[in-house]
């Protein structure tokens, strides 16, 4: 008698929440289109099991100050546009970004220490130059983050941008700014399921609706903690599917930041020959970090290299087909 095989489907009680970034004219903003992420009612790409209403999207990272410290591989790929954030953002649009991730690096005390008013101008002009939804990152220094992100949130009022990063010991100011101006806040935790959930809860306890929170469980690059991110993201997704409302936020991964920090992507001299071709290595590093985390449940991937964008988009096409 032939054996019969039934598709092994698991029953889930929950789904990832949908979060929309960007607001068009109809919604009180000026974006040309909006991007909705999340919504999966199954593990990544298991189409046989549950609905996957939105594909993962790619945010291309741009900076408001020329990133002289970036790898030559990146700098040569982008060329001159890195000197002008507006041109850079426009080129990112041309490359097919779904979202522009604007890093306000110039507000960092070590790279210009620009104040909130200058930053407000930058944000306004980027909003004017491109019509994609925006993610805005502060310089990563708590006091400066709070100072400039509040102004950024104000000038972007109504545009439904995502603002980050909110961390366990510095979230109240940013959440309040998002609440007041209709934005989405990004909750970051240090590769820890529990702390991620705690920051999500604390932010939601401030009254921020759950469909205005993205979570960033911290990305470990390939070879530098990728497995921890992978497992934390799997656990968060499982918990979301099991119905835990406080882990159902879509996930955003800062792939570019981490992958290009890896020695493999940064160092061309004095490394083993078996590492292969330096010119290609960084891109592969970024690509593999991205596609691996895609399979762990990433909804938004923040990338740096145009070729990685291309590779990852192809991978998403294949996974979503």
């Amino acid at each position: 008698m032939p054996v019969t095989v039934q598709t092994p489907v698991e029953k889930w009680n929950g789904a990832v929440r949908e979060v929309t970034l960007g607001a068009t004219k109809a919604d009180g903003g000026t974006r040309g289109r909006t991007v909705t992420v999340g919504g999966s009612a199954t593990l990544p790409f298991l189409h046989f099991e549950g609905a996957i209403p939105n594909r993962p999207v790619i945010a291309i990272q741009v900076q408001d100050i020329d990133p002289l410290d970036w790898s030559p591989t990146l700098r040569s790929a982008w060329g001159d546009v890195t000197k002008d954030v507006l041109k850079w953002a426009a080129k990112a649009v041309d490359l097919g970004a779904d979202i522009i991730a604007l890093n306000l690096r110039s507000a960092h005390p070590d790279s210009g220490n620009r104040g909130p008013e200058e930053i407000a101008e930058t944000v306004k002009s980027v909003l004017g130059a491109v019509d994609l939804p925006l993610i805005i990152y502060g310089p990563g220094v708590p006091e400066k983050d709070n100072e400039v992100l509040v102004r950024a949130a104000e000038v972007a009022a109504g545009e439904r941008v995502a603002i980050g990063l909110c961390e366990q010991n510095n979230y109240r100011t940013i959440v309040a700014a998002c609440l007041a101006n209709g934005h989405v806040a990004i909750a970051r935790a240090p590769i820890d399921v529990n702390i991620q959930k705690q920051i999500n809860i604390l932010m939601s306890d401030m009254g921020l609706p759950l469909d205005r929170i993205l979570m960033d469980p911290t990305t470990g690059a390939l070879g530098y903690g990728l497995e921890y991110s992978f497992s934390v993201m799997e656990r968060l997704r499982l918990s979301a599917l099991q119905g835990d409302g406080m882990t159902q936020m879509p996930t955003i991964c800062t792939i570019g930041d981490e992958a290009w920090r890896a020695k493999e992507a940064k160092v061309s001299q004095g490394v083993p020959e078996v590492w292969g071709d330096f010119a290609k290595r960084g891109v592969v590093w970024e690509t593999i970090t991205a596609t691996t985390l895609l399979n762990a449940g990433a909804d938004i991937l923040v990338l740096r290299h145009p070729q990685a964008v291309e590779n990852v988009r192809k991978a998403i096409d294949q996974l979503i087909a």
């Binding site: 820890d192 399921v193 529990n194 702390i195 959930k197 705690q198 809860i201 835990d244």
Partner: peptide, 15 residues
């Protein structure tokens, strides 16, 4: 893991 999740009031797992 259990410790971090209990470092919250009453607990990270409200259920």
């Amino acid at each position: 893991n259990e410790y971090t999740s209990a470092l919250f009031l009453p607990h990270t797992d409200m259920t």
